[in-house]
Design a protein around this nucleic acid. Sequence first.
DNA 1: CGCGTTGGTGAACGTTGTTCACTCCAGCGG
DNA 2: CCGCTGGAGTGAACAACGTTCACCAACGCG
Lengths: 235, 235
Amino acid sequence: MTDVKPPVPRRERLRAATQDELVAAARELLVAGGVDAVTLRSIAGQLGMTAPAIYRYFDSREALLNTLVDSLYDELADYLLTVRDAAQSLTDRFVLTSRAFREWALAHRAEFGLLFGAPVPGVGHAATEGGKDTDRGMRFARVWLDLFIELAESNNRPMTWRRPISAALNSQITDYVNSIGGVVSVEVALLYLSCWERLYGAVCTETFGHLAFAVDDGAELFEDQLLDVAERLGL
Amino acid sequence: MTDVKPPVPRRERLRAATQDELVAAARELLVAGGVDAVTLRSIAGQLGMTAPAIYRYFDSREALLNTLVDSLYDELADYLLTVRDAAQSLTDRFVLTSRAFREWALAHRAEFGLLFGAPVPGVGHAATEGGKDTDRGMRFARVWLDLFIELAESNNRPMTWRRPISAALNSQITDYVNSIGGVVSVEVALLYLSCWERLYGAVCTETFGHLAFAVDDGAELFEDQLLDVAERLGL
DNA sequence: CGCGTTGGTGAACGTTGTTCACTCCAGCGG
DNA sequence: CCGCTGGAGTGAACAACGTTCACCAACGCG
């Protein structure tokens, strides 16, 4: 079970390894000194080589940062999925996952800022990626989306949208629902988006420090938002 | 009424004028190409001078950016105040001001990102400014805070917090309330913070493009949030 | 008139991302 | 075992960046 069958030609394994080391070093520099501190020479220095060597692994600094973004999305999604799937009741799955999202953001402010902060031209944001996202954010989006599918299937909940839905919005949401396989209704998709907007917004506000002028721990404010959302979802 | 009394020694006026031109040029570059495009040489070039000349007006690029941030906060606060104070009913003042915030953000994405995006070490974020903010964000914060004071004074509204308030939170909120003159109760301050978290969050989500994977106009989602907040405030 | 403060320049330094010519060694075929 | 090919890594170099310095020109005051 250890290395009976090495179909990977060793050379590529080493290559992949240093590639991973490079993004790991980049991440260290990011948390230590912000995105401006993640310098090709510093990255290279951390594994004892020089800057131009990086170009054997990435086309540019930007490409390296994009890979870092990808890996962070993956890490976050993995973490949230383990939390989500460890919980028993639907309510717990929703509440604990949402709390975990906030806690990951606060424990990894720099990374969160890179993933979800103001989009910088060049740094591959899920959003700036040509309108529709690549599969980068897909896994992440699925974390809550699955919960809403489950929520809709156990249908004795009040899954309604309270306002008139314009034709334009309806068509866009329909397109979106189709793009993910048509597994939910338009109303549930709207609830999903609204819920995401609210959770992300609360986490964003606190993580970026826009509550710090009054309070240094937004936990109770977040709990209130969460309670409110859960109520609206009938949880 | 034109220039009967010029107590400003002309020299300082010119100085202030080019200083303003510099931050205006910086802003243009910001919206054109993101914060990385705002280069000392480019700024200087736009008013026909060379980069070192800027140091006669600002200590560093960072200082210039901070001044830009200040001026943007001022512009935004001015705009919101005119909208707010033009409205008649309290409900209108709240709703129209909130809509105006979203619209300013969408019409000035780059500037909004600089003001409210992920804090960059160095760029004087209201938040990173040593915990408590300077008077920079103060005027801005007052925009909604005044509405909540008004809301509390016309007291036949349900101004209650629905969850237990921990001693730690209570003490922090009390400190904050005192720091602004003790004009509101702890519960109203909490409602204010919760409301701010929600509005900022919604605007942030949309402006940073984290709704774009499904919809390209978040207006109706925002209206739903706004309706919800207004209901909770008894408007 | 003279003279100092102020605004502006050009050259320069150190650091950044990136390119290029070059070396070097691992791993393969004969 | 030799020879070679190709990938990994280096050092020098370039342009652009923020910043500093010595210098200069011009305006306004006494």
